[in-house]
Write a protein that binds this DNA or RNA. Structure first.
Lengths: 122, 122
DNA sequence: GCCTCCGGTTCCCTTGAAGTAACTCGGTAT
DNA sequence: ATACCGAGTTACTTCAAGGGAACCGGAGGC
């Protein structure tokens, strides 16, 4: 309690920034139903590069949202799963994701209308 | 229906990116209860510069989330308010904001623990 | 001896979002 | 004439996130 996101120094700004990071939403969403391995995440989240996936996972780990389990096998088997904390983020993120998926047409229409209102640049 | 954020070309990625933009959450939240003028937004959202506020508002306008009303007075009076669409985003964003505000201690603790686990760099 | 598999790492470059600071515009007040 | 207001704009800089491509290491298989 007592945090105010509007305050310049509020730590929740950092947290919001993390959530807003390009790939966080996708990784968390991907781990919703079961633990996944690196390659599985990679193929599940289309377009993510290994570098960025690693970075995102490390950040999520540091923040205590994702747990990494190295099974010490050969070939390597490493699994990522949501922690309790990470799981608690699912609900809000799902809401945002659902909103995004549901309102695409309206947003696209608004953009098209705005574009039509402006003088075409060609 | 039928959008899948995990698909490389899904338009919802663009939408999520917009929502994730540094200042979107703050502007939308600030407009929750009543229309605000430029300066009011500026003082309400601590740390935002006029340039960035303008950019954010323009984007929100284009996306149809915020309506701009110029009252054509002198000195100028311009009010920004959420549209119906913008208002529908409030609920999901509030959830995320609440989550952020609520889980700061845990995230900070996780970060501190992770930092302690690593070899100090000095 | 070399390849493959998995889970990365490394280096380097590009982009674009954000920040800084100074300036504009048109009208009214002093 | 000058200054001030609100609501921006403009030009320039900065910087971290992101992307691309190539490489690594050790076990097991051919």
């Amino acid at each position: 309690m007592g945090y105010d996101v509007m305050a310049r120094t509020c730590p929740s700004r950092v947290v919001l920034h993390r959530i807003g990071a390009r790939w966080t939403v996708f990784v968390v969403n991907a781990l919703e139903h079961q633990p996944l391995r690196f390659v599985e995440l990679r193929t599940h989240i289309q377009g993510i590069t290994p570098k960025v996936l690693t970075e995102t996972l490390r950040t999520l780990e540091r923040d205590g949202l994702v747990a990494r389990t190295d099974h010490e096998e050969h070939p390597p088997r490493v699994e990522y799963e949501l922690t309790e904390l990470g799981r608690s983020l699912l609900e809000p993120l799902r809401a945002v994701r659902r909103w995004a998926e549901a309102h695409i047409p309206e947003i696209q229409a608004a953009n098209a209308a705005a574009a039509a209102r402006e003088p075409g640049d060609s």
